[in-house]
Design a protein around this nucleic acid. Structure first.
Lengths: 267, 267
DNA sequence: CGATCTGTTGACTGTTATCAACTCCGGTGG
DNA sequence: CCACCGGAGTTGATAACAGTCAACAGATCG
Protein backbone atom coordinates (compact mmCIF):
# COMPACT_ATOMS: atom_id res chain seq x y z
CA UNK A 1 0.00 0.00 0.00
CA UNK A 2 1.47 3.31 -1.06
CA UNK A 3 2.74 5.83 1.47
CA UNK A 4 0.34 8.68 2.15
CA UNK A 5 -2.66 6.51 1.37
CA UNK A 6 -3.82 6.54 4.95
CA UNK A 7 -4.28 10.28 5.24
CA UNK A 8 -6.33 10.44 2.05
CA UNK A 9 -8.90 7.98 3.44
CA UNK A 10 -9.13 10.04 6.62
CA UNK A 11 -9.44 13.22 4.58
CA UNK A 12 -12.30 11.66 2.60
CA UNK A 13 -14.19 10.94 5.78
CA UNK A 14 -13.59 14.36 7.33
CA UNK A 15 -14.60 16.13 4.14
CA UNK A 16 -17.75 14.01 3.94
CA UNK A 17 -19.12 15.73 7.04
CA UNK A 18 -17.34 19.11 7.33
CA UNK A 19 -15.91 21.66 4.94
CA UNK A 20 -12.16 22.12 5.36
CA UNK A 21 -9.63 24.45 3.78
CA UNK A 22 -6.66 23.20 1.76
CA UNK A 23 -4.45 24.44 4.57
CA UNK A 24 -6.29 22.28 7.11
CA UNK A 25 -6.10 19.20 4.92
CA UNK A 26 -2.41 19.76 4.25
CA UNK A 27 -1.80 19.24 7.97
CA UNK A 28 -2.85 15.62 7.47
CA UNK A 29 -0.11 14.90 4.98
CA UNK A 30 2.38 14.62 7.83
CA UNK A 31 0.21 12.04 9.57
CA UNK A 32 2.47 9.44 11.14
CA UNK A 33 0.89 6.02 10.86
CA UNK A 34 1.96 2.43 11.00
CA UNK A 35 -0.19 0.31 8.74
CA UNK A 36 -1.25 -3.16 9.83
CA UNK A 37 -3.09 -6.03 8.19
CA UNK A 38 -5.45 -8.10 10.29
CA UNK A 39 -7.47 -11.23 9.67
CA UNK A 40 -11.15 -11.42 10.60
CA UNK A 41 -12.16 -11.53 14.29
CA UNK A 42 -8.95 -9.89 15.41
CA UNK A 43 -9.19 -7.93 18.67
CA UNK A 44 -7.73 -4.47 18.17
CA UNK A 45 -8.83 -3.08 21.53
CA UNK A 46 -10.34 -4.82 24.52
CA UNK A 47 -12.43 -3.55 27.39
CA UNK A 48 -10.06 -2.03 29.94
CA UNK A 49 -7.33 -1.02 27.47
CA UNK A 50 -5.91 2.50 27.58
CA UNK A 51 -4.55 3.08 24.10
CA UNK A 52 -2.28 5.99 23.13
CA UNK A 53 -3.25 5.79 19.49
CA UNK A 54 -6.34 5.62 17.27
CA UNK A 55 -7.25 3.20 14.50
CA UNK A 56 -8.12 4.48 11.05
CA UNK A 57 -9.91 1.94 8.86
CA UNK A 58 -8.34 1.82 5.39
CA UNK A 59 -9.99 -1.34 4.14
CA UNK A 60 -12.48 -3.82 5.53
CA UNK A 61 -14.82 -3.49 8.50
CA UNK A 62 -14.45 -3.08 12.24
CA UNK A 63 -17.05 -3.23 14.98
CA UNK A 64 -17.47 -2.42 18.63
CA UNK A 65 -18.85 -5.42 20.44
CA UNK A 66 -19.79 -6.56 23.89
CA UNK A 67 -19.51 -10.19 24.94
CA UNK A 68 -20.95 -11.80 28.02
CA UNK A 69 -21.92 -15.33 28.89
CA UNK A 70 -21.60 -16.69 25.37
CA UNK A 71 -23.65 -13.88 23.87
CA UNK A 72 -22.17 -11.28 21.55
CA UNK A 73 -23.73 -7.95 20.71
CA UNK A 74 -22.36 -5.63 18.04
CA UNK A 75 -23.07 -2.00 18.94
CA UNK A 76 -21.69 -0.32 15.84
CA UNK A 77 -19.94 -1.05 12.59
CA UNK A 78 -17.19 0.99 10.96
CA UNK A 79 -16.06 1.33 7.38
CA UNK A 80 -13.18 2.77 5.38
CA UNK A 81 -12.28 6.28 6.56
CA UNK A 82 -13.79 5.81 10.03
CA UNK A 83 -11.80 6.16 13.24
CA UNK A 84 -14.01 4.06 15.51
CA UNK A 85 -11.89 4.71 18.60
CA UNK A 86 -11.43 8.44 18.02
CA UNK A 87 -12.93 9.05 21.46
CA UNK A 88 -9.87 7.42 23.06
CA UNK A 89 -8.06 10.60 22.04
CA UNK A 90 -10.41 12.55 24.31
CA UNK A 91 -10.48 9.92 27.05
CA UNK A 92 -8.47 6.70 26.76
CA UNK A 93 -10.87 4.50 28.73
CA UNK A 94 -12.31 1.66 26.66
CA UNK A 95 -15.62 -0.03 27.59
CA UNK A 96 -16.06 -2.44 24.70
CA UNK A 97 -14.05 -4.63 22.34
CA UNK A 98 -12.96 -3.27 18.98
CA UNK A 99 -12.77 -6.19 16.57
CA UNK A 100 -12.26 -6.75 12.86
CA UNK A 101 -15.31 -8.20 11.11
CA UNK A 102 -13.49 -8.96 7.89
CA UNK A 103 -9.84 -8.93 6.93
CA UNK A 104 -8.90 -5.29 7.45
CA UNK A 105 -6.15 -2.77 6.87
CA UNK A 106 -5.74 -0.36 9.75
CA UNK A 107 -3.56 2.71 10.17
CA UNK A 108 -2.51 3.32 13.73
CA UNK A 109 -2.28 7.03 14.51
CA UNK A 110 -0.81 8.28 17.80
CA UNK A 111 -3.00 10.52 19.97
CA UNK A 112 -0.13 13.00 19.96
CA UNK A 113 -0.78 13.64 16.27
CA UNK A 114 -4.39 14.60 16.96
CA UNK A 115 -3.19 16.81 19.80
CA UNK A 116 -0.70 18.60 17.55
CA UNK A 117 -3.17 19.12 14.71
CA UNK A 118 -5.82 20.34 17.15
CA UNK A 119 -3.37 22.89 18.52
CA UNK A 120 -2.40 24.07 15.03
CA UNK A 121 -5.90 24.35 13.60
CA UNK A 122 -9.10 25.03 15.54
CA UNK A 123 -11.17 23.93 12.58
CA UNK A 124 -9.43 20.55 12.51
CA UNK A 125 -10.00 20.23 16.26
CA UNK A 126 -13.65 20.93 15.55
CA UNK A 127 -13.70 18.41 12.72
CA UNK A 128 -12.42 15.67 15.05
CA UNK A 129 -15.10 16.55 17.55
CA UNK A 130 -17.78 16.54 14.86
CA UNK A 131 -16.64 13.12 13.73
CA UNK A 132 -17.26 11.83 17.22
CA UNK A 133 -20.57 13.69 17.59
CA UNK A 134 -21.71 12.08 14.38
CA UNK A 135 -20.92 8.61 15.72
CA UNK A 136 -22.95 9.42 18.82
CA UNK A 137 -25.89 10.64 16.73
CA UNK A 138 -25.81 7.42 14.70
CA UNK A 139 -25.80 5.41 17.89
CA UNK A 140 -28.83 7.27 19.22
CA UNK A 141 -30.63 6.72 15.96
CA UNK A 142 -29.86 3.00 16.12
CA UNK A 143 -31.43 2.71 19.58
CA UNK A 144 -34.69 3.84 18.00
CA UNK A 145 -34.47 1.11 15.37
CA UNK A 146 -33.53 -1.55 17.92
CA UNK A 147 -36.29 -0.49 20.27
CA UNK A 148 -39.17 -0.10 17.89
CA UNK A 149 -38.68 -1.92 14.60
CA UNK A 150 -39.04 -5.58 13.66
CA UNK A 151 -36.27 -7.83 12.37
CA UNK A 152 -36.81 -7.03 8.70
CA UNK A 153 -36.62 -3.29 9.27
CA UNK A 154 -33.53 -3.63 11.47
CA UNK A 155 -31.65 -5.63 8.87
CA UNK A 156 -32.72 -3.30 6.09
CA UNK A 157 -31.71 -0.25 8.12
CA UNK A 158 -28.30 -1.60 8.98
CA UNK A 159 -27.58 -2.48 5.37
CA UNK A 160 -28.73 0.96 4.23
CA UNK A 161 -26.42 2.60 6.74
CA UNK A 162 -23.39 0.57 5.70
CA UNK A 163 -23.97 1.24 2.02
CA UNK A 164 -24.60 4.94 2.56
CA UNK A 165 -21.45 5.35 4.64
CA UNK A 166 -19.37 3.52 2.06
CA UNK A 167 -20.78 5.73 -0.67
CA UNK A 168 -19.93 8.80 1.39
CA UNK A 169 -16.25 7.94 0.99
CA UNK A 170 -16.55 7.01 -2.68
CA UNK A 171 -17.05 3.26 -2.33
CA UNK A 172 -19.98 0.97 -3.18
CA UNK A 173 -20.86 3.10 -6.19
CA UNK A 174 -22.46 0.06 -7.80
CA UNK A 175 -24.40 -0.99 -4.67
CA UNK A 176 -22.30 -4.13 -4.45
CA UNK A 177 -20.29 -4.50 -1.27
CA UNK A 178 -18.17 -7.12 0.44
CA UNK A 179 -20.41 -8.17 3.32
CA UNK A 180 -19.20 -7.00 6.71
CA UNK A 181 -21.01 -9.93 8.28
CA UNK A 182 -21.67 -13.58 8.34
CA UNK A 183 -25.40 -14.01 8.86
CA UNK A 184 -24.61 -14.72 12.51
CA UNK A 185 -22.78 -11.42 12.72
CA UNK A 186 -25.73 -9.60 11.20
CA UNK A 187 -27.90 -11.26 13.83
CA UNK A 188 -25.58 -10.08 16.63
CA UNK A 189 -25.80 -6.53 15.34
CA UNK A 190 -29.58 -6.51 14.91
CA UNK A 191 -30.37 -8.26 18.16
CA UNK A 192 -32.03 -11.26 16.51
CA UNK A 193 -31.19 -14.95 16.26
CA UNK A 194 -29.00 -16.27 13.43
CA UNK A 195 -31.84 -18.43 12.15
CA UNK A 196 -34.16 -15.48 11.96
CA UNK A 197 -31.49 -13.35 10.29
CA UNK A 198 -31.33 -16.01 7.63
CA UNK A 199 -35.08 -15.96 7.14
CA UNK A 200 -35.04 -12.18 6.75
CA UNK A 201 -32.25 -12.31 4.19
CA UNK A 202 -34.01 -15.04 2.27
CA UNK A 203 -37.13 -12.91 2.24
CA UNK A 204 -35.12 -9.95 0.92
CA UNK A 205 -33.56 -12.11 -1.80
CA UNK A 206 -36.91 -13.64 -2.68
CA UNK A 207 -38.30 -10.14 -3.25
CA UNK A 208 -35.25 -9.43 -5.40
CA UNK A 209 -34.25 -6.54 -3.16
CA UNK A 210 -30.75 -7.89 -2.66
CA UNK A 211 -28.45 -10.84 -3.25
CA UNK A 212 -26.34 -12.34 -0.48
CA UNK A 213 -23.73 -14.70 -1.76
CA UNK A 214 -20.24 -15.71 -0.69
CA UNK A 215 -19.91 -12.63 1.51
CA UNK A 216 -20.86 -10.25 -1.24
CA UNK A 217 -24.06 -8.26 -0.93
CA UNK A 218 -25.65 -6.75 -4.01
CA UNK A 219 -28.50 -4.31 -3.57
CA UNK A 220 -30.84 -4.76 -6.51
CA UNK A 221 -33.58 -2.42 -5.34
CA UNK A 222 -32.16 0.37 -3.23
CA UNK A 223 -35.38 2.37 -3.09
CA UNK A 224 -37.35 -0.55 -1.76
CA UNK A 225 -34.67 -1.31 0.83
CA UNK A 226 -34.76 2.32 1.98
CA UNK A 227 -38.55 2.14 2.16
CA UNK A 228 -38.55 -1.04 4.26
CA UNK A 229 -35.92 0.45 6.55
CA UNK A 230 -37.63 3.84 6.75
CA UNK A 231 -34.07 4.96 6.26
CA UNK A 232 -33.62 8.73 6.59
CA UNK A 233 -29.89 9.30 6.18
CA UNK A 234 -29.83 12.84 7.58
CA UNK A 235 -28.67 11.52 10.96
CA UNK A 236 -25.36 10.58 9.31
CA UNK A 237 -24.76 14.32 8.81
CA UNK A 238 -23.26 13.78 5.38
CA UNK A 239 -22.80 16.87 3.29
CA UNK A 240 -24.00 14.99 0.24
CA UNK A 241 -22.71 14.93 -3.32
CA UNK A 242 -19.87 12.90 -4.70
CA UNK A 243 -16.78 12.75 -2.53
CA UNK A 244 -14.60 14.34 -5.20
CA UNK A 245 -17.03 17.25 -5.53
CA UNK A 246 -16.91 17.82 -1.81
CA UNK A 247 -13.26 18.69 -1.95
CA UNK A 248 -14.02 21.45 -4.46
CA UNK A 249 -10.81 23.41 -4.37
CA UNK A 250 -9.68 22.12 -1.04
CA UNK A 251 -7.58 19.12 -2.09
CA UNK A 252 -4.09 19.36 -0.72
CA UNK A 253 -1.77 19.30 -3.73
CA UNK A 254 -0.12 16.14 -2.53
CA UNK A 255 -3.36 14.17 -2.79
CA UNK A 256 -4.40 15.05 -6.32
CA UNK A 257 -4.81 12.02 -8.48
CA UNK A 258 -5.48 9.66 -5.60
CA UNK A 259 -9.22 9.96 -5.37
CA UNK A 260 -9.91 8.64 -8.82
CA UNK A 261 -8.85 5.11 -7.95
CA UNK A 262 -10.74 4.89 -4.71
CA UNK A 263 -13.09 2.10 -5.69
CA UNK A 264 -10.22 -0.19 -6.53
CA UNK A 265 -9.11 -0.28 -2.90
CA UNK A 266 -12.10 -2.20 -1.63
CA UNK A 267 -11.66 -5.39 -3.56
CA UNK B 1 -35.59 28.83 44.11
CA UNK B 2 -32.54 30.54 45.52
CA UNK B 3 -29.97 32.22 43.26
CA UNK B 4 -26.84 30.17 42.72
CA UNK B 5 -28.70 26.91 43.15
CA UNK B 6 -28.31 26.03 39.50
CA UNK B 7 -24.54 26.02 39.44
CA UNK B 8 -24.34 23.77 42.50
CA UNK B 9 -26.39 21.04 40.76
CA UNK B 10 -24.12 21.28 37.75
CA UNK B 11 -21.06 21.16 40.00
CA UNK B 12 -22.42 18.01 41.65
CA UNK B 13 -22.72 16.32 38.32
CA UNK B 14 -19.28 17.39 37.07
CA UNK B 15 -17.63 16.34 40.31
CA UNK B 16 -19.38 12.97 40.14
CA UNK B 17 -17.32 12.03 37.10
CA UNK B 18 -14.16 14.18 37.18
CA UNK B 19 -11.95 15.71 39.86
CA UNK B 20 -11.90 19.50 39.71
CA UNK B 21 -9.97 22.14 41.64
CA UNK B 22 -11.68 24.80 43.76
CA UNK B 23 -10.50 27.32 41.19
CA UNK B 24 -12.27 25.47 38.39
CA UNK B 25 -15.50 25.15 40.33
CA UNK B 26 -15.40 28.82 41.29
CA UNK B 27 -15.73 29.64 37.61
CA UNK B 28 -19.23 28.18 37.75
CA UNK B 29 -20.45 30.63 40.37
CA UNK B 30 -20.84 33.27 37.68
CA UNK B 31 -23.01 30.99 35.59
CA UNK B 32 -25.74 33.07 33.98
CA UNK B 33 -28.95 31.13 33.91
CA UNK B 34 -32.62 31.80 33.55
CA UNK B 35 -34.64 29.27 35.50
CA UNK B 36 -37.88 27.92 34.07
CA UNK B 37 -40.63 25.68 35.37
CA UNK B 38 -42.26 23.26 32.97
CA UNK B 39 -45.16 20.88 33.21
CA UNK B 40 -44.88 17.29 32.01
CA UNK B 41 -44.63 16.55 28.25
CA UNK B 42 -43.29 20.00 27.48
CA UNK B 43 -41.10 20.23 24.39
CA UNK B 44 -37.85 22.01 25.25
CA UNK B 45 -36.14 21.32 21.93
CA UNK B 46 -37.48 19.87 18.72
CA UNK B 47 -35.80 18.14 15.83
CA UNK B 48 -34.38 20.82 13.59
CA UNK B 49 -33.85 23.47 16.28
CA UNK B 50 -30.52 25.26 16.54
CA UNK B 51 -30.35 26.41 20.14
CA UNK B 52 -27.80 28.89 21.49
CA UNK B 53 -28.13 27.64 25.04
CA UNK B 54 -28.11 24.41 27.02
CA UNK B 55 -30.59 23.02 29.52
CA UNK B 56 -29.44 22.04 32.99
CA UNK B 57 -31.90 19.82 34.85
CA UNK B 58 -32.43 21.10 38.39
CA UNK B 59 -35.45 19.02 39.28
CA UNK B 60 -37.54 16.40 37.54
CA UNK B 61 -36.77 14.35 34.47
CA UNK B 62 -36.12 15.03 30.80
CA UNK B 63 -35.80 12.66 27.88
CA UNK B 64 -34.70 12.61 24.29
CA UNK B 65 -37.38 11.05 22.16
CA UNK B 66 -38.17 10.25 18.58
CA UNK B 67 -41.71 10.22 17.28
CA UNK B 68 -42.96 8.86 13.99
CA UNK B 69 -46.27 7.55 12.78
CA UNK B 70 -47.90 7.48 16.19
CA UNK B 71 -44.98 5.63 17.76
CA UNK B 72 -42.73 7.21 20.39
CA UNK B 73 -39.32 5.96 21.36
CA UNK B 74 -37.35 7.38 24.29
CA UNK B 75 -33.62 7.12 23.64
CA UNK B 76 -32.32 8.43 26.95
CA UNK B 77 -33.49 9.85 30.24
CA UNK B 78 -31.87 12.67 32.20
CA UNK B 79 -31.90 13.54 35.87
CA UNK B 80 -30.94 16.41 38.16
CA UNK B 81 -27.49 17.75 37.31
CA UNK B 82 -27.55 16.49 33.73
CA UNK B 83 -27.22 18.74 30.70
CA UNK B 84 -28.88 16.49 28.13
CA UNK B 85 -28.26 18.90 25.27
CA UNK B 86 -24.65 19.72 26.14
CA UNK B 87 -23.66 18.57 22.66
CA UNK B 88 -25.51 21.54 21.16
CA UNK B 89 -22.63 23.60 22.55
CA UNK B 90 -20.27 21.66 20.26
CA UNK B 91 -22.69 21.50 17.34
CA UNK B 92 -26.13 23.11 17.52
CA UNK B 93 -27.89 20.64 15.21
CA UNK B 94 -30.70 18.77 16.96
CA UNK B 95 -31.93 15.39 15.67
CA UNK B 96 -34.47 14.46 18.35
CA UNK B 97 -37.02 16.03 20.67
CA UNK B 98 -36.03 17.01 24.18
CA UNK B 99 -39.11 16.70 26.36
CA UNK B 100 -39.98 16.86 30.05
CA UNK B 101 -41.19 13.54 31.46
CA UNK B 102 -42.37 15.02 34.75
CA UNK B 103 -42.82 18.58 35.93
CA UNK B 104 -39.28 19.93 35.78
CA UNK B 105 -37.12 22.88 36.74
CA UNK B 106 -34.60 23.77 34.08
CA UNK B 107 -31.77 26.29 34.06
CA UNK B 108 -31.05 27.67 30.62
CA UNK B 109 -27.35 28.37 30.15
CA UNK B 110 -26.04 30.20 27.06
CA UNK B 111 -23.43 28.43 24.93
CA UNK B 112 -21.31 31.55 25.33
CA UNK B 113 -20.84 30.71 29.00
CA UNK B 114 -19.45 27.27 28.15
CA UNK B 115 -17.19 28.91 25.59
CA UNK B 116 -15.86 31.39 28.12
CA UNK B 117 -15.26 28.80 30.82
CA UNK B 118 -13.56 26.49 28.31
CA UNK B 119 -11.23 29.30 27.31
CA UNK B 120 -10.40 30.12 30.94
CA UNK B 121 -9.82 26.57 32.13
CA UNK B 122 -8.65 23.62 30.03
CA UNK B 123 -9.70 21.22 32.76
CA UNK B 124 -13.26 22.58 32.68
CA UNK B 125 -13.27 22.26 28.89
CA UNK B 126 -12.20 18.68 29.39
CA UNK B 127 -14.89 18.13 32.02
CA UNK B 128 -17.59 19.28 29.57
CA UNK B 129 -16.25 16.90 26.98
CA UNK B 130 -16.13 14.03 29.46
CA UNK B 131 -19.72 14.72 30.41
CA UNK B 132 -20.69 14.23 26.80
CA UNK B 133 -18.45 11.18 26.34
CA UNK B 134 -20.14 9.63 29.35
CA UNK B 135 -23.57 10.14 27.79
CA UNK B 136 -22.33 8.45 24.64
CA UNK B 137 -20.92 5.51 26.62
CA UNK B 138 -24.25 5.09 28.40
CA UNK B 139 -26.04 5.11 25.05
CA UNK B 140 -23.75 2.41 23.66
CA UNK B 141 -24.33 0.34 26.75
CA UNK B 142 -28.09 0.70 26.36
CA UNK B 143 -27.99 -0.63 22.79
CA UNK B 144 -26.59 -3.85 24.23
CA UNK B 145 -29.49 -4.13 26.65
CA UNK B 146 -32.07 -3.30 23.98
CA UNK B 147 -30.55 -5.73 21.53
CA UNK B 148 -30.01 -8.73 23.76
CA UNK B 149 -32.10 -8.68 26.92
CA UNK B 150 -35.76 -9.48 27.54
CA UNK B 151 -38.39 -7.08 28.82
CA UNK B 152 -37.80 -7.81 32.51
CA UNK B 153 -34.06 -7.19 32.25
CA UNK B 154 -34.59 -4.00 30.24
CA UNK B 155 -36.96 -2.54 32.79
CA UNK B 156 -34.72 -3.57 35.68
CA UNK B 157 -31.67 -2.09 33.96
CA UNK B 158 -33.33 1.21 33.23
CA UNK B 159 -34.53 1.55 36.81
CA UNK B 160 -31.07 0.70 38.12
CA UNK B 161 -29.53 3.34 35.92
CA UNK B 162 -31.95 6.06 36.98
CA UNK B 163 -31.48 5.28 40.67
CA UNK B 164 -27.71 5.09 40.36
CA UNK B 165 -27.51 8.41 38.54
CA UNK B 166 -29.74 10.08 41.11
CA UNK B 167 -27.58 8.72 43.91
CA UNK B 168 -24.48 10.07 42.16
CA UNK B 169 -25.79 13.58 42.73
CA UNK B 170 -26.91 12.93 46.28
CA UNK B 171 -30.56 12.03 45.62
CA UNK B 172 -32.55 8.81 46.09
CA UNK B 173 -30.53 7.96 49.19
CA UNK B 174 -33.48 5.89 50.45
CA UNK B 175 -34.09 4.11 47.11
CA UNK B 176 -37.42 5.85 46.80
CA UNK B 177 -37.80 8.07 43.74
CA UNK B 178 -40.50 10.02 41.98
CA UNK B 179 -41.10 7.92 38.88
CA UNK B 180 -39.84 9.49 35.68
CA UNK B 181 -42.45 7.53 33.77
CA UNK B 182 -45.98 6.49 33.39
CA UNK B 183 -45.98 2.78 32.60
CA UNK B 184 -46.51 3.75 28.96
CA UNK B 185 -43.42 5.93 29.13
CA UNK B 186 -41.39 3.09 30.58
CA UNK B 187 -42.61 0.95 27.69
CA UNK B 188 -41.51 3.59 25.15
CA UNK B 189 -38.05 3.65 26.69
CA UNK B 190 -37.64 -0.12 26.87
CA UNK B 191 -39.07 -0.85 23.45
CA UNK B 192 -41.96 -2.93 24.75
CA UNK B 193 -45.74 -2.49 24.76
CA UNK B 194 -47.48 -0.68 27.62
CA UNK B 195 -49.40 -3.81 28.50
CA UNK B 196 -46.24 -5.82 28.79
CA UNK B 197 -44.53 -3.08 30.80
CA UNK B 198 -47.39 -3.38 33.24
CA UNK B 199 -46.97 -7.14 33.51
CA UNK B 200 -43.25 -6.76 34.17
CA UNK B 201 -43.85 -4.20 36.89
CA UNK B 202 -46.53 -6.39 38.45
CA UNK B 203 -44.05 -9.25 38.46
CA UNK B 204 -41.43 -7.07 40.13
CA UNK B 205 -43.93 -5.94 42.78
CA UNK B 206 -45.14 -9.48 43.32
CA UNK B 207 -41.55 -10.55 44.04
CA UNK B 208 -41.35 -7.61 46.45
CA UNK B 209 -38.42 -6.13 44.51
CA UNK B 210 -40.11 -2.78 44.16
CA UNK B 211 -43.34 -0.87 44.66
CA UNK B 212 -44.86 1.28 41.93
CA UNK B 213 -47.60 3.53 43.22
CA UNK B 214 -48.89 6.95 42.29
CA UNK B 215 -45.73 7.78 40.38
CA UNK B 216 -43.44 6.90 43.24
CA UNK B 217 -41.09 3.95 42.86
CA UNK B 218 -39.63 2.31 45.94
CA UNK B 219 -36.85 -0.23 45.50
CA UNK B 220 -37.25 -2.84 48.24
CA UNK B 221 -34.54 -5.23 47.06
CA UNK B 222 -31.78 -3.34 45.27
CA UNK B 223 -29.43 -6.31 45.06
CA UNK B 224 -32.03 -8.48 43.39
CA UNK B 225 -32.90 -5.69 40.92
CA UNK B 226 -29.21 -5.31 40.07
CA UNK B 227 -28.95 -9.07 39.61
CA UNK B 228 -31.95 -9.25 37.28
CA UNK B 229 -30.60 -6.32 35.28
CA UNK B 230 -27.04 -7.65 35.25
CA UNK B 231 -26.36 -4.01 36.05
CA UNK B 232 -22.65 -3.14 36.05
CA UNK B 233 -22.53 0.59 36.73
CA UNK B 234 -18.93 1.15 35.62
CA UNK B 235 -20.16 2.40 32.25
CA UNK B 236 -21.56 5.45 34.03
CA UNK B 237 -17.96 6.42 34.86
CA UNK B 238 -18.90 7.59 38.32
CA UNK B 239 -16.02 8.24 40.67
CA UNK B 240 -17.96 6.59 43.49
CA UNK B 241 -18.42 7.61 47.11
CA UNK B 242 -20.85 10.12 48.51
CA UNK B 243 -21.23 13.31 46.56
CA UNK B 244 -20.08 15.45 49.49
CA UNK B 245 -16.93 13.35 49.87
CA UNK B 246 -16.12 13.79 46.21
CA UNK B 247 -15.70 17.48 46.67
CA UNK B 248 -13.01 16.84 49.31
CA UNK B 249 -11.49 20.27 49.60
CA UNK B 250 -12.67 21.51 46.26
CA UNK B 251 -15.95 23.18 47.20
CA UNK B 252 -16.02 26.78 46.09
CA UNK B 253 -16.55 28.83 49.21
CA UNK B 254 -19.80 30.22 47.91
CA UNK B 255 -21.40 26.78 47.83
CA UNK B 256 -20.64 25.61 51.34
CA UNK B 257 -23.75 24.74 53.23
CA UNK B 258 -25.79 23.99 50.14
CA UNK B 259 -25.07 20.33 49.70
CA UNK B 260 -26.55 19.23 52.98
CA UNK B 261 -30.09 20.00 51.95
CA UNK B 262 -29.88 18.39 48.53
CA UNK B 263 -32.46 15.68 49.16
CA UNK B 264 -35.09 18.20 50.06
CA UNK B 265 -35.06 19.62 46.56
CA UNK B 266 -36.54 16.60 44.88
CA UNK B 267 -39.90 16.54 46.57
C1' DC C 1 -11.29 -36.02 2.00
C1' DG C 2 -12.61 -35.23 6.52
C1' DA C 3 -13.23 -31.02 9.37
C1' DT C 4 -15.29 -26.83 10.04
C1' DC C 5 -17.75 -22.86 9.08
C1' DT C 6 -21.70 -20.84 6.86
C1' DG C 7 -26.05 -20.98 5.28
C1' DT C 8 -30.82 -23.35 4.97
C1' DT C 9 -35.03 -25.43 6.41
C1' DG C 10 -38.89 -27.41 9.30
C1' DA C 11 -41.15 -28.17 13.66
C1' DC C 12 -42.07 -26.56 17.91
C1' DT C 13 -41.96 -23.26 21.75
C1' DG C 14 -41.97 -18.99 24.11
C1' DT C 15 -42.13 -14.12 24.50
C1' DT C 16 -44.41 -10.17 23.45
C1' DA C 17 -47.95 -7.47 20.74
C1' DT C 18 -52.59 -6.41 20.07
C1' DC C 19 -57.30 -5.89 21.21
C1' DA C 20 -60.81 -5.17 24.31
C1' DA C 21 -62.84 -4.40 28.50
C1' DC C 22 -62.73 -2.83 32.99
C1' DT C 23 -61.19 -0.39 37.53
C1' DC C 24 -59.42 3.30 39.92
C1' DC C 25 -58.46 7.92 40.67
C1' DG C 26 -58.16 12.94 40.42
C1' DG C 27 -59.96 16.85 38.35
C1' DT C 28 -63.61 19.72 36.59
C1' DG C 29 -67.89 21.70 35.86
C1' DG C 30 -72.76 21.62 36.69
C1' DC D 1 -71.90 17.67 46.34
C1' DC D 2 -71.97 14.74 42.60
C1' DA D 3 -71.72 13.30 37.74
C1' DC D 4 -68.74 13.03 34.33
C1' DC D 5 -64.41 12.62 31.99
C1' DG D 6 -59.83 11.29 30.78
C1' DG D 7 -55.62 9.29 32.00
C1' DA D 8 -53.34 5.57 34.25
C1' DG D 9 -53.19 1.05 35.48
C1' DT D 10 -55.00 -3.95 35.16
C1' DT D 11 -56.47 -8.20 33.18
C1' DG D 12 -57.62 -12.03 29.87
C1' DA D 13 -57.82 -13.91 25.20
C1' DT D 14 -55.71 -14.34 21.00
C1' DA D 15 -52.28 -13.65 17.37
C1' DA D 16 -47.84 -12.49 15.50
C1' DC D 17 -43.14 -12.59 15.74
C1' DA D 18 -38.93 -14.51 16.84
C1' DG D 19 -36.15 -18.09 19.52
C1' DT D 20 -34.59 -22.78 19.95
C1' DC D 21 -33.50 -27.24 18.50
C1' DA D 22 -32.16 -30.31 15.11
C1' DA D 23 -30.71 -31.80 10.87
C1' DC D 24 -28.59 -31.15 6.64
C1' DA D 25 -26.31 -28.90 2.35
C1' DG D 26 -22.61 -26.46 0.34
C1' DA D 27 -18.27 -24.24 0.47
C1' DT D 28 -13.56 -23.83 1.88
C1' DC D 29 -9.40 -25.39 3.64
C1' DG D 30 -6.02 -27.94 5.82
Amino acid sequence: MQAGFAFSKFADRLVSIVELTPGDLDLLTNMPSSIRYYGPCHHILQKGDRPDHCSLVLQGYLCWQHVNSSHRHITSIHVTGDVPDLHTFFDPRVDFDLVTLSPAVIASIPHSFFREISALSPSMARAFLLLFLTEAAALRNWTVTLGSRDALARVAHLLCEVVERLRAVGLARDFRIPSPFTQSGLADACGISPVHANRVIRELSRSNILQWQARTITINNWNELVRLAEFAPDYLRLRGGDVTELYRNSLPKSAIGRCASKDAALH
